[in-house]
Design a protein around this nucleic acid. Structure first.
Ligand SMILES: [Mn+2]
Ligand SMILES: [Mn+2]
Ligand SMILES: [Mn+2]
Ligand SMILES: [Mn+2]
Lengths: 218, 218
DNA sequence: TCTAATTTTTAGACTTGTCTAAAAATTTAT
DNA sequence: ATAAATTTTTAGACAAGTCTAAAAATTAGA
């Protein structure tokens, strides 16, 4: 149905659309995929021919319903495989992404349904990102950045914005794990750094970290 | 390291070498991969450049040690994934091959080592074929075709020669499963058909079937 | 509005992998 | 040994995907 390359473009557009309701520009896609605008321009024609995007010239592309469903299914596979790697194969959360980038392109509906069942129908991947359902529906969860919490407010750590290996390993080193309860003890006006209470311990957190950690306010 | 296409050629040559100690001909490879001799000729140059085959002109190719190890690792991955699909995802043995053809190309040593462990370090795939170890060593097992058994001889069913979906489903329908003990009750000279005793039941088996079932004599 | 900066597309080239058709080399048969 | 049949290689073309460089369209600025 779709080539590996087409799937990667669809996924990129899908992710970009989550942050924008306007058409996705050629340049934005090129940046996301670390490729050139001319290559994107070529691919847009192919995707348009295949009815997965609509293109209004110089206004960017938008996914059609078919495009959205196709892209969501790739994201679904990516995240289910990440759960599998962590839960069944003892990968840590900073090791799974590159392997999932490969596994997401395996074509077998039965495989992914059975994997879903084996994993107990998980709703989120190891980084706290929601797993689209079979129909491509994504439930958006009510999340805030840790940096938006005020003094004495609390939340449960539910996800990361930056899911680079570097950031994830940094969180590991600090002992910050999804599910942990965090309370803001102090907020420095000077550099927006935080003093937080997490799992009974006190920690100092820079603004950069607080801007990349999602919490659910409680 | 190797492209998907290069990996498929290596695997094809590896399988062909198991049945022949001579160089593998261009035509034999073309037939195995359902492609054209000219394409094979092109690819042999690439593989030769990459030091995974040696080519003596008009004498066919042979895998180098590096080539053998690389090919065996692909076969190892293919067979481990087949075990996974059957043991963990409830696939039947006739459904696994095509998915394994895709999964065998996933690149992650950790993935395959952990999968091996999850599966309990299996030695054979669902069709009775041996799984190469981490160093690419394949233990050849002592197996005979059911058709070579004489009247009143017995064996345990340990593998299939033809592993097409059609044959595997036929075996399912007849109730023949790996591990079953088979005794030859009668052998017809006329058409070489067999009357066998399997799991307490009597069955009539054509020569075609008996020529595609491996047993271990007991 | 008219020019400048930016974005996007096109033109042309290159790589990988494939194919058909034809040429060349080898093997087999007489 | 020579011709015939077979195998293998080469030549040339094509599709997918990418790139650089240049042209065209759009948007922004004065
Ligand atoms: Mn990921
Ligand atoms: Mn991908
Ligand atoms: Mn197989
Ligand atoms: Mn393959």
């Amino acid at each position: 149905m779709f080539t590996l390359s087409e799937e990667n473009y669809l996924k990129a557009i899908y992710h970009l659309e989550l942050d924008s309701d306007k058409g996705i520009s050629t340049n934005a896609i090129a940046e996301q995929l670390e490729t050139k605008a001319s290559s994107v321009s070529d691919m847009i024609k192919k995707l348009s021919d295949k009815k997965v995007v609509v293109y209004k010239k110089y206004k960017g592309v938008k996914l059609t319903d078919l495009g959205k469903k196709t892209a969501a299914n790739i994201v679904r596979k990516h995240r289910l495989w990440e759960v599998f790697l962590v839960e069944k194969l003892n990968f840590s959360w900073d090791e799974v992404h590159d392997v999932a980038e490969q596994l997401e392109h395996i074509k077998s509906p039965k495989l992914i349904n059975q994997l879903d069942a084996l994993l107990g129908f998980p709703t989120h991947d190891p980084h706290g990102d929601p797993i689209p359902d079979k129909n491509g529906n994504l439930k958006t969860i009510d999340k805030s950045l840790l940096s938006t919490l005020s003094k004495n407010e609390s939340g449960v750590c539910i996800g990361v914005d930056d899911s680079s290996s570097e950031f994830l390993r940094f969180l590991d080193k600090k002992g910050i794990t999804l599910g942990n309860k965090i309370t803001v003890l102090e907020k420095e006006d000077f550099d927006d750094s935080l003093s937080i209470l997490i799992e009974g311990k006190q920690l100092s957190i820079s603004n950069k970290i607080a801007n990349n950690l999602y919490i659910k306010k409680i």
